[in-house]
Amino acid sequence: MRVFPDKHEEYKKRHDQLWPEMREMLKSHGCTKYSIWLDKETHYLFGYLEFDDEELFSKITDTVTNRKWWDYMEDVMDTNYDNSPISIALTQVFELSD
């Protein structure tokens, strides 16, 4: 995902003030961890999510809360025609674990 160069602070502010209904919707769809990092030079965002059930989590895109969030964020980041963030799925190439 990519945030507009002049919207870094606004992007962070909106996430610092995440709507309670958005937080609840994520949790009710099995999201246990969600972190977002910003590369301030390229304006790219990297999101890391953990969730219990991929099928349940995939239903997030159809929720009213999620659609409202996409509309709310459309003015601070690159989006698709439906205001969903333009994102690229990455392929994991390494993990160190126990």
Rank of each mutant, 00 (worst) to 15 (best):
M1V: 02
M1R: 10
M1N: 08
V3Y: 00
F4I: 05
P5I: 07
P5W: 04
D6V: 03
K7Q: 10
K7G: 04
K7L: 09
K7T: 00
K7F: 12
H8I: 05
E10H: 05
E10T: 13
Y11H: 06
Y11M: 10
Y11V: 07
K12R: 12
R14N: 09
R14D: 07
R14K: 09
H15T: 03
Q17N: 14
Q17F: 09
L18E: 05
W19C: 00
W19T: 03
M22N: 03
M22T: 14
M22D: 05
M22H: 03
R23F: 00
M25S: 04
M25I: 11
L26P: 03
L26R: 01
L26V: 03
L26S: 02
K27W: 09
K27T: 08
K27V: 13
S28W: 06
S28E: 14
S28V: 03
H29W: 06
C31W: 00
C31F: 05
C31Y: 11
T32R: 12
K33Y: 11
K33P: 00
Y34F: 07
S35A: 12
S35T: 09
I36Y: 06
I36C: 04
I36Q: 04
I36G: 01
I36W: 02
W37R: 06
W37M: 04
W37F: 14
L38E: 08
D39E: 10
D39W: 13
T42A: 13
T42P: 08
T42F: 13
Y44I: 09
Y44G: 00
Y44A: 02
L45C: 11
F46Y: 15
G47L: 14
Y48F: 15
Y48P: 01
Y48V: 11
L49P: 00
E50D: 05
E50K: 03
E50Y: 04
F51I: 04
F51R: 02
F51S: 04
D52T: 14
D53L: 05
E54M: 10
E54Y: 06
E54G: 02
E55K: 10
E55H: 08
E55V: 10
S58K: 14
I60S: 03
I60N: 01
I60E: 00
I60V: 14
I60D: 10
T61G: 07
D62H: 08
T63L: 06
T63W: 02
V64K: 12
R67Q: 14
R67M: 05
K68S: 08
K68H: 12
W69M: 04
W69E: 00
W70I: 02
W70V: 02
W70N: 02
D71P: 06
Y72W: 11
M73N: 01
M73L: 06
E74P: 03
E74K: 12
M77D: 00
M77G: 02
D78P: 01
T79R: 05
N80K: 15
Y81M: 10
Y81H: 08
D82W: 13
D82Y: 15
N83F: 13
N83G: 01
S84W: 04
P85F: 03
S87V: 12
S87W: 09
T91E: 15
T91P: 04
T91N: 13
Q92H: 07
V93D: 10
V93I: 04
E95T: 01
E95S: 09
L96R: 15
L96E: 10
S97M: 12
S97I: 15
D98T: 12
D98S: 09
D98G: 07
D98W: 15
